[in-house]
């Protein structure tokens, strides 16, 4: 969502900086500043402008969320709120409306993310570190699974869950039966996430030293033990990658949720967000505060697993 927008465009521009200029870093800062060429100035100007361009909507949104309705109409969107027009009321109000959806989203995202990552990891281990006939075909099926668009499965998906009749299956326990929609969504997202998780885990597992796994076999460890005692403990960084990826994907999904969730009490945050849209008057401060509240958990996940994420992306074992 909006969270990763500002960082992404800045990095490629950075890489494109003239490689000859980086040599200047071994001299003093003063020396460097003195003979900064016009090219360098232009480069920084462009970078700053790009940064500002991408950050402006975020900044406007954040400031708008702290303005009263009057202040919003009387100021430009990216100006800070006037003293008498500053308020946190939109945040409280938005949180009030979204809290149920936030809880439901967590109930959905945490198990779906964990299940898809764990199953992806297991599948990748079986496809990468264990030899068996026909594994290439199975791998290709997984890779194909990555490319199935959400829209293509909507109809089969709803028909499938109608046929399954999860409500009846879960009828033995009332609290669970009332959550049947959410359970269906958890399973759907978990299943949909397995291919991409498998591919991510596979690329990581193919870098694991084969001799080490052979040593473990000679040490008497079974395939399951090798997974539990060697592969899994070494998978930290790639788990961070898939957890962040899956968390963001599932948290931000609206399409599956719209199709599969029928009862209002199971609504997730992306659906609840729509409730902040006024019918007559648009309350932009409320909508902005709601958008930030809805996006916050994905940001937090990046912060929490950021270091391991970087390791996982760099492919360190």
């Amino acid at each position: 969502m909006a969270t990763d927008a500002p960082a992404a465009p800045a990095e490629p521009s950075d890489d494109q900086a003239d490689p000859t200029e980086t040599r200047e870093s071994d001299r003093g800062l003063g020396d460097q500043l003195r003979d900064v060429g016009p090219g360098r100035v232009a480069l920084y100007a462009v970078l700053l402008a790009l940064g500002a361009f991408y950050l402006a909507p975020l900044e406007s949104g954040l400031l708008t969320a702290f303005k009263t309705q009057e202040a919003f109409f009387s100021t430009t969107p990216f100006a800070p709120p006037p003293i008498d027009g500053t308020t946190v009321a939109p945040w409280l109000s938005a949180f009030d409306t979204l809290s149920g959806g936030l809880v439901n989203s967590f109930i959905l995202v945490v198990p779906a993310t964990l299940i898809s990552a764990l199953l992806g990891s297991l599948a990748a281990y079986g496809l990468t570190n264990i030899d068996w006939r026909g594994q290439l075909v199975v791998l290709l099926l997984f890779v194909a699974g990555v490319f199935i668009p959400y829209q293509a499965v909507l109809v089969p998906l709803t028909r499938f869950w109608t046929m399954v009749g999860l409500n009846d299956l879960l009828a033995f326990w009332e609290p669970l039966a009332s959550r049947a929609d959410l359970v269906a969504l958890i399973i759907t997202h978990a299943a949909y996430g397995i291919p991409i998780c498998t591919v991510l885990f596979r690329s990581f597992y193919s870098t694991i030293d084969g001799e080490m796994l052979e040593a473990a076999r000679l040490d008497g460890a079974s395939a399951a033990t090798i997974y539990r005692r060697i592969i899994l403990p070494l998978s930290g960084p790639i788990f961070a990658v898939t957890l962040i990826y899956q968390f963001t994907q599932i948290w931000n999904d609206l399409l599956f949720a719209l199709v599969l969730l029928s009862s209002p009490e199971n609504q997730v945050v992306t659906i609840a967000l729509n409730k902040l849209k006024g019918s007559m008057v648009q309350q932009y401060n409320l909508q902005m505060a709601g958008a930030f509240i809805a996006a916050l958990p994905t940001l937090l996940v990046y912060v929490l697993f950021g270091e391991q994420f970087a390791e996982g992306v760099a492919g360190e074992t």
């Binding site: 080490m212 040593a215 076999r217």
Partner: peptide
């Protein structure tokens, strides 16, 4: 391999890094 009562030393040492 596990039932052969054989131990092997590998060129890369193949130690468990964790």
């Amino acid at each position: 391999p596990a039932d052969r009562d054989i131990a092997m030393v590998f060129q890369s040492y193949a130690l468990y890094p964790h």
